[in-house]
Structure formats: C-alpha cells, structure tokens
Design a protein around this nucleic acid. Structure first.
Lengths: 244, 244
DNA sequence: CGTAGGTTTGACTGATCTCAAGTTTGGTGG
DNA sequence: CCACCAAACTTGAGATCAGTCAAACCTACG
C-alpha cells in the first residue's frame, strides 16, 4: 500500500465519490473530521453487541466481518467489509448495537465520533446523500445474501460468495477480480453461507474440479467467469457498482 | 379502518414520527407532497425488477412482499411490508431496481414522485433523518433474516417469522401482537424462510402441538410468548421499535 | 521442529425436500 | 342458498443434500 493510500480522508472521499458527485466543499468538510487511526490484529472484536454506539469506523486496510450469534450455538456472518467501507453508519442514528464486528485479517481502521460525521452530513447534503446511498447498497447486499442462503444450493452459495468478493474487491480498488487472495477461512465462509466448514471444503474443491476456479492455498483464480457466474447465479446489479 | 386512518399524510407522519421528532414545519412539508392513492388486488405485481425507478410507494392498508427469483426456479421473499412502510426509498437514490414487489392481500397504497420526496428530504433535515433511519431499520431486519435463514432450524425460522410479524404489526398500530390474522399462505412463508410449503405446514402444526400457538384457519394466537420467543430465538432489538 | 489452526477425506446420520394423494376452505355463478 | 371449483392445507413414504463425527494431513509460525 502506498503512503497516499493510507490517508484516511482520501480513502473515504474515494468511496463517497463513487456514490455521489462530491464538490470541493464536500471534500474539504470531510477533511475536517476528527479521526483516530488504529490497527488491530486478526480475529479480534472491533464492535461488540450491546456496546454503546458512539463512533463510526472506516476500514482502511484488511477485512472484517459482521456477525450474529444464534441461541443454538451457531454463528451467522451477515456481511464482509473491506477498504473504504464504513461499517457502522447506523451508529449515526441509533444508540443500540444488535450485532458484532470482528477482524478477519490484521486491520487498519479510522474511528470518527458519530456526532461529527452526523454534523458534516447535515451541513453537506451531497455527503449525506452519498452516505445514505452507501447504506442502501449495504441493504441491497443483505437482501442478496438472504436469497443466497435461502434459495441456492451449497455450491451456488459458495460460488456466489466468491463472485461477490471478487467484484467488491475490484470496486474498492484492490485489484483485478480474476485473481485474489481469500482472507477468510473455510469455516468463516461456512458461517457466511449457512454451511459447515466441511461442506464448504467439498464445494470449493468441486468448483476447482469443474475448472471454474484454480486454487493455490488461499489464492483464487477465477478461471472461467462465465461458468462461475452461471453456477453462482451471480448478477452484479445488486452491488450498484456504478454510480447511478 | 377509520376515515382518518386512510389519510396518506397522517400514515406517513405517524411512521416518521416514530423514528424522529418531527416539527410542525416537517409535518407541513410532508403534507405538500404530490400523491396518488390507488388500490391493487391480491397477488398482483407492484414493482417489477428492471423497471424504471421513478416513484416511491407508501403502504396504507394490506400487505406486500419483496422477492427475488433464483435461476434454479426458486423464489426468495426478502421482506414483508405493511401500513406505514415506504417500500422503495432506494428509488430516491438509485435508478435501477434489482428485485420485485407484489401484493399479498388487497392493498391500498400512495405513490409519490421520488424527486418530490427527495426535495422534502433536502429541505427538512429531520425528515431526511427519519427516512434514513427507516432504511437502517430495514437493513437491520434484512440482516436478521440472513441469520434466520442461514443458521436456524425449520421450526425456529417459522416461529421467528411469526414473532416478527406480530411485533411489526403492533409497531405499525395494527393491534395486539398476541392475536392476529396471517395474511400470507404457507407457500409464501416457505418462500420467506427458505423452506418448502410442506415443511412449513409441519412446523406450524408442531408449534400448535407444543401449545406455543393456537390456530383457527389463518388466525394466530400466540398462546405462550415466552416459549415462542425461546423456540424462535427472537430478540426484538433488531426492530429498533422505540425511537432512539 | 513442535504445535495449533486450517484443510481434506470418508462413513454414517438426519433434517428437509420431493412426489403424490387426499381434505378443507373460500369464492363464484346458477 | 346451493353446487362447484381452484387454491390452500394436510398427510405419508421415500429420496437426497448437507450435517456430524472422526481422523489424517498440511502449513505457517513461533
């Protein structure tokens, strides 16, 4: 990562500019936000359910997941987040947290007081609109996940997760969707798709045997996008990748 | 339904007032919105995937569901909506529609140009905040659905759906959560929970045999809330029912 | 090199689906 | 008001996809 990419404001501006046309005043307002940058090792809690909700967090580098625990002992990952994602915009408007966030890899993140972000949003309608769009995209992704977990078979679910991850990585400016390093374990993929780690393993190997992907440890090469899209039932429209 | 309850602006104001403290100016601004009220029979399309997204729809009476179709022929209902719900706030900010909405019962609804709603939101920050909160609540419900469909067994899923429906009905001012008429068929419950209609039937009967619910055709009496909550793994926090 | 976490594999189990038939219900037209 | 019909609900038996359990094998890292 280049020094320039580490600038928290530039990461945020790049993300919001993808969602709305930011003016120079909007960019300037974002740059006034008070911010703390921190780093956290892999597999550490970042936000815990029930905790007070006073800050918003922007991911600068690394990956995190949001999850919920079921009373039967199961865990469901409800979203993954990466560079440019503000993982808790809801803290701007709600005081209660009903799910938890933890790191998957080492993560560098910025923390803003929710009140400060809220004030910028009130003064700069374009910024508010971009933030709102971001929540709407997140909601759209959630709905697609309901579909994924509810109506697709195991192989499609895993394939869909890989396709989504590849596309979102690209949209976040992290490189080509064809080749990438998977940050999560097969257990975590299972928690995200409603499957067991054992079955995730079988499905990934099956995708490999089909020639849809080629693996080398955690590195994935989507060798046959057309086939992958079909197996995954993947239509990227729900990601609202191009500003509209 | 009383005449007063039919007033589209009062339904909208009641909903938004639950989410933010509306001033009299805010209420006045809402009342200036150009609006068309229509009625649609049960099982009719209200919004179709791929259609242009120029209007927003507020449900006044009856029930609708939002769904997606999988390439394997399956259908996943991703949300239910009732009185007071604006079902497509995303149309204020996106031009593309990636899922469909259809009526479950006869539905009375109001239609606003998205641009008009957007303008009110720009002029009245409190209204914008309330609308944003509404999207955040919807997103929170979606995440709970991912959990429901991904990590709970069949009986819990169905029980959870019933608990959520009961609570949301009450929050919408439609009466006690203990007794209500279910508007949806068992097939539709299956499409929402990722189960088949046959298995939904068995689970509902099983809840009945447990004494958790008592049924008379479509009318449900949640006879043992404590037991029901436990079976459903239901914690209403995610509904953000009380303004916060 | 030793250890813990992650991945792979196989055999068996079980929750849910599928298919198929029967019953009930609510609406409609005579 | 009754007869009919389509849709919804109910029930049973057999099939299957994914889960469980258990063990072996990597591999990264201290």
């Amino acid at each position: 990562m280049q020094a320039k990419d580490c600038n928290v404001f530039e990461v945020m501006i790049a993300k919001l500019a993808r969602l709305s046309q930011l003016g120079s005043d909007d960019r300037a307002a974002i740059r006034t936000l008070p911010v703390t940058v921190s780093e956290l090792a892999a597999n550490r809690p970042l936000i815990r359910e029930g905790q007070a909700a006073g800050d918003c967090h922007l991911i600068l580098d690394g990956y995190v997941c949001r999850y919920k625990l079921a009373s039967n002992g199961g865990r469901q990952i409800v979203s993954f987040h990466m560079r440019g994602d503000v993982i808790d915009l809801q803290h701007m408007l709600f005081n209660t947290v009903d799910d938890s966030v933890q790191t998957i890899t080492t993560v560098k993140y910025a923390r803003f007081p929710a009140s400060a972000l809220r004030q910028v949003a009130q003064e700069r309608p374009v910024v508010a609109e971009a933030l709102w769009r971001d929540t709407l995209v997140d909601a759209s992704i959630s709905r697609e996940w309901v579909m994924n977990v509810g109506r697709r078979d195991a192989k499609s679910r895993v394939a869909h997760l890989l396709c989504e991850f590849a596309m979102r990585r690209e949209l976040a400016g992290l490189g080509s969707p064809e080749r990438f390093e998977l940050p999560m374990t097969q257990e975590q993929i299972g928690d995200a798709t409603g499957l067991t780690a054992v079955h995730v393993n079988r499905m990934i190997r099956s995708l490999d045997e089909d020639g849809a992907i080629v693996r080398d440890h955690r590195s994935i090469h989507i060798a046959d996008w057309k086939n992958m899209r079909q197996i995954a039932d993947f239509d990227p429209m729900y990601l609202h990748g191009t500003a509209t």
